[in-house]
Each structure stands twice: as C-alpha cells, then as structure tokens.
Design a binder for these strands. Structure first.
Lengths: 196, 196, 196, 196
DNA sequence: GATGAATGAGCTTTCATTCAT
DNA sequence: AATGAATGAAAGCTCATTCAT
C-alpha cells in the first residue's frame, strides 16, 4: 500500500531529524515514535531495529544529497561554476535542512559500531559519492581539473565543507554560512584545478 | 603526589583509546577501569563523571596535537614546507596513535551534548587551534598565503585531513595514508597560497 | 484504562507497606517490584522516580486517614465523644494497618530531603490536616474546647498519638494500644477543653 | 589519653549535627570526616561502623537532654513550674542546638533498622527517659499529677513537644517556638494534673 | 496495523569499609 | 594515629525490544 510507504518515509524523516539533533544514543525509539504520534511498538513493524533504522536513514539522506549533486552535474557549465553551485547547494542545505548534514557528521561519521555491518566502505552513501565521482571525472575529462586520486579530491571537497559546517555549528564564524560560499569554492577550485 | 598524577594520565590515555575505538556511549566506565586493571569505583576518585572525563581527554589530546604543530611553527622554513610537515605529522599520528585523531572525529566532533558545558566554541581544543592560527598568520605575514578568513583556511586544512583519515578508516583508499601526504599537502598549498 | 489505575494503587499500597516497614532508603525499587511480582523497570512506567512515589504515597495515605476523621466529624455527638472516636480510630488503624501511621512517622516526618519539593508546609498531608482543623474549630464553636492556636492543639493531639504508637512499636507498653485509648482520650480532652 | 576522648566527642558532635541536618543515609562517613578535617579511614579508629556511630550519638544526645531534665527535677518548686521549665528548656534547645531534637526525630525515631541491635526498648535513650520518669513519679507523689501509666503521660509530653518542633520545622507556625511555651505547658498540665 | 505494558540487561554512580603506607 | 587510594556491592534508572490484546 502507498500508505505504508508514506509512513516509512515519515519515520525516516523523524529519525533523521532527531538523530541529527541529539545523536544516535541520546535519541530513543520512544522519542521518535512520540515525535510522530505513533507508538514505539508499531515502529518495529516498519524497521526491525534501531540500528537498521539508522542505516536506512543514511541511505535516504545520501539519496537526497546525491540528487542535488546530480542536478549540478547535468548542467552545461564550467567546472568552476559547478563547484560554486555544489558549495552553495551544500550550505543551503545546511542552513535550511541541517539535519542531513548533521546526520552525516554526528551520526554516520562517528558511530562506526552502528554502521559496521552493511555500510562498509561507504556503501550506504554510494549514491552521493557516485555523483561526486561523476563531477570529478567530468572536470578532469574537460581538462579543468588535475587528474589525481579521486579520494584525494573527494576528501578535500567534502572534508572542507563538512568541517566548515561543524565550525558554523560551534558558533565561531563571524558571518553566515552562505557568505563564505564564494571564498570556499575558490579555495577548492585552486586546490583542484589543472595547472595549465 | 606524583603517583596520583601518573594514574590520572594513565586513565586519560586509556579513556582516549577506548572512547576513540568504540565511541563515547559504547564505552562504559567499567570498560575503561577493566582495561587498566582498576575498579570502576576508584576511577571516580580521579574524575567526577564520565562526561568530565571525556572533556579532560579532549584537552589532553588537543595539547599533544597542538604541541606537534608548535614544533613545526618553530622551524625556519617556507610555508609550503610547513604544510608538508603538518600533513605528514598528522598522518603519522593517525597511523601510529590513531586514537588522537579518531577521538577528535568520533567523540568530540559528534557528541555535542557531552561537551556543551565547558567546551563551547572550541574552548577545549584551543591549544591546537591556536597553533594553527599561528601557522596561518605567519604564512600570510610572509606573503606566502592569501589573506582570508582564518576559519575558511582552518576548515579547509583540518576538514580535509580529518575527512581523509575518515576515508582511510573506511578502507576505501588504495594506498597508505602517508603515501597521500604529498598530494594532499600540494592541494592545500594551492588552495591557500597567495596569487602573486 | 481501569487496569492501569488498579495497578497504580497496588504499587502505592506496596510502597506504603515496605517504606513503612523498612524506611525509605532501606527499601529499594526492586524490593517493591519483587513484592508485587513485577519488574523494576515497569514500575517506572507508573511513577517517574522513587521520590515521586514516596510523595504520592503520603498523599494517598493522608487521604485515607483524613477520610476516617471526616466520618467522625460528620457524627452528631459531643466533642469528648469525637475525641474518643478519633483516638480509637487512630489506634485501630495502627493495629490493623500500621503502615499508614508508620509511614507518617518513619518516612514522611523524617526524610525531609525527599519531600522538600512539592510537599512543603504539610501540603501533601493537607487532606488529613484539614479534617483535624474542622474537628477543632467545631469544638471551639460549640464551646467545648478552649480557643487556642490550632497548631498548639494539633501538635498535642497528633504528637501524642504518634508518639504513643512509636512507644508501642518500641515494645515498652504493658498493654495493647487499644486499651490505652480511653486514658489517652481523656488526657487530650483535659488538655483542650474549655475551662467553663 | 585525654586527646582521644576529645576527638571521640568531636566526632560525636559532628555526626550529630550532620545526621540531624541531612538524615542518616544522606550523610556519608566522608562527609563527617571532612567536616572535622580528618580522614574517613581514621574515623574507623574511633567507631567501628556507621551504625555504631549512630547508636553512640543517640546515647550522647540522650545524656545531654537528660541532664537538662535532671536539673529541673532538682529544683524545689511545683510540678506546674517544672512543666514550664521542661517545655521552655526543650524549646530553647530546639532553637539553639536543634541538632539534638532533630536527631531524635529524624534519625532515632525513623531508622529502626539502624538501632535495632543494641537500642531495643529505648535502651539508648534511657538516661533521658529515666529523668522524665523521676519527674512524673515525683509529681504523682506530691499529689499534683494524676496517677496513670507512665508511658501514657510520657507519650503525651514528648510526643507533643516533638510534634510541635516538627511543625515549627515545617514552617507552619505563626510565632517563634518559645512564644508557644506557655500555652503548651498549660495544655500538658491540664492533661496530667490530678483532679482534686 | 496499532498499542503500550512489560521485561531484563546494563549503565553510571555512590559509599561503607579496608589496608598499605 | 593518620591518610586516602582502592574495592565491591548495590542502587536508581533507562531503553531496545517483545507480545498480548
């Protein structure tokens, strides 16, 4: 039934929000259930365990973030402009729906024990990673980016953006996230562009 | 007495190791005590709570990491060479004593609720951040780095390195961490160097 | 559901009994749960903490004791007779369901730290105190009791009865509690009656 | 050595104070030791256990309270005047050194499990009870008090005073304790005096 | 599908007491 | 006599998960 799909997604959104805000361990299944107005017991009709729920959430979020990158990849513009758009899109997400980025940083990145079975090797974030790979290889193919190890470039790009969102959350930044977008996109471009 | 200081440091090291390996919540006080061969009750003669212990650990680790940066800052060499050395030193640490980096990524960065009182605004990692600030301002003063917002540069540097260590932990890298050091240091240099 | 109400009351009765018999601190939540054949964890579905349970118990008991006084107040008889009946009723209670009186003496009266928030100024025993106030003011209005500070009279009445039940518990009395009722009622009457 | 006797008494006073203020279970041995500036371990050189300490404290306090009654008993005055003086003395104590009365009410009266071995049947408060017995029998012998069961009279006297101090502690009284002394002494006298 | 009472394992923390120094 | 580190047992409480209804 479509209703079941709807409710499943509703649980994913609620879990995403609460896990991101309070962390995996500090969020209880009753918390999530109460937030949605359903019973804790019933939640187990949709997800067999808290761990499984967390894994489904990361896939769900990775799909949404990957979709945003895919849209940029589809554009017909220079690699520099694509970097601008990815950075902007990422910070926009961090501003409007911070749960996606926070989940990544606070839950997925940290609680390895939770994701160890079934999400090894970035498996559960592959839809996002794949789009970043397309972006990178495209830039290289066009001669606009230096050809280097993908993860070298990926680590720079995502580590930078993630780290910056963290700094923003710590309240140490003077300006709003989006106001840094240009500067940061430029740094990334300088780091990755071909020398020609 | 010096014995008490010794034991306190021993607890810090053990907690650092276990928290880094298993995460804050999945590590219990009895785990730490057993690892050291002491009783859980006695541990409370040294640290008043698990949260307090976690806060002392981040300060302890930040001091050690900051000290390594300080040594690089003291060298008489170009900024590019300093970047090389910092990246190398960081990856060396991540290889030999991964608990320091992992603690940063897995415990400090993620469990905000644990550090919210007393570690606000990177207070508990200030010894590390301060050294990075010195590195950056020195490079700018020497005309070797572009003058930009410190946190823009800091986020790139540390986000990149942290993200890369995470990727290494995920097992997606082809080579060993240290073999990436050159490439990564170069990316960082390109991103930050003055245009002249 | 009514079942929940039933179980709640059952817990109150069990806690009353055990707290009264062994004291607040020497009675554990598992003790109470085991006594009822339920799990300790489940008890927390009914009362959020041990302290809260103790506060609910004193209200519960005060209601029951107050109800007994109310019945005497409703009678159409002299004040001396009412004193007789109150003393008798109190000792009857102390004989048949000693937990109510003992709880008052051993738990409520002594463990101030437990009742400090929410039960200040006899708030949690007000249903009982109110009935005693009605008794006293009625006697004064009828000219059978001297008009004096209510708490002077209340202290005499309840301090006396409580103290006597304590002596009985200490095993220093020669006769059964009920056999002292007359003598004690007379003492109280002499103490409080109008001089006319 | 006299020094040992001095320290023992110092511990008794400290324990009396803290037990009375916070209750038996909420006061720890380290609390008492720290209050005196000695170590917890050393305290065990003077008293073999916390329970034993509590028992010694009640004897110590009973001696002091009994001594005050003895002084009244030694006076050459009417029984009514003696009642006045006992009530006054008791309230004075409750005002100036409330720990004695509070210990009686909060610790001795409530924590039966602590005093069950060695203090049965008011054994540990016998020095106080004995003086009250002397007071009572003297009054009867002089024809000023009705001859009745001693504990009937004792329960009235001490239950009343104890209960009133409790009410005072609850903050429900309008006036200070000492201002009630006359009224209360009169009530007691009316209750106990011979009918002649 | 939905509820929520129930369980049981486990966690942090406390504290009386001991004992090497 | 004095210290205080150390122990170990126990307590209050939480929560993922189950299951009868």
């Amino acid at each position: 039934m479509d209703k079941k799909r709807k409710k499943t997604e509703n649980i994913l959104e609620s879990a995403l929000l609460l896990f991101a805000k309070k962390g995996f361990y500090a969020t209880t299944i009753p918390d999530i259930a109460k937030y949605m107005g359903m019973s804790a017991g019933n939640l187990y009709n949709y997800f067999p365990s808290k761990e499984n729920l967390a894994k489904e959430v990361i896939k769900y979020s990775s799909d949404i973030l990957g979709e945003r990158i895919r849209k940029v990849n589809d554009l017909d513009c220079s690699t520099k402009e694509k970097i601008d758009k990815i950075v902007y899109s990422y910070f926009e997400m961090a501003t409007q729906k911070p749960q996606h980025i926070d989940y990544f940083l606070r839950v997925y990145l940290s609680n390895k024990e939770v994701f160890k079975d079934g999400c090894e090797g970035m498996l559960c974030v592959s839809s996002f990673v794949t789009e970043m790979m397309i972006f990178f290889e495209d830039g290289v193919a066009r001669g606009e980016l230096r050809n280097q190890d993908f993860f070298s470039a990926f680590g720079l790009f995502m580590g930078y953006l993630g780290g910056f969102v963290f700094l923003n959350g710590e309240g140490v930044l003077q300006k709003s996230l989006l106001e840094y977008a240009d500067e940061i996109a430029t740094n990334i471009y300088y780091a990755l562009k071909s020398n020609a």
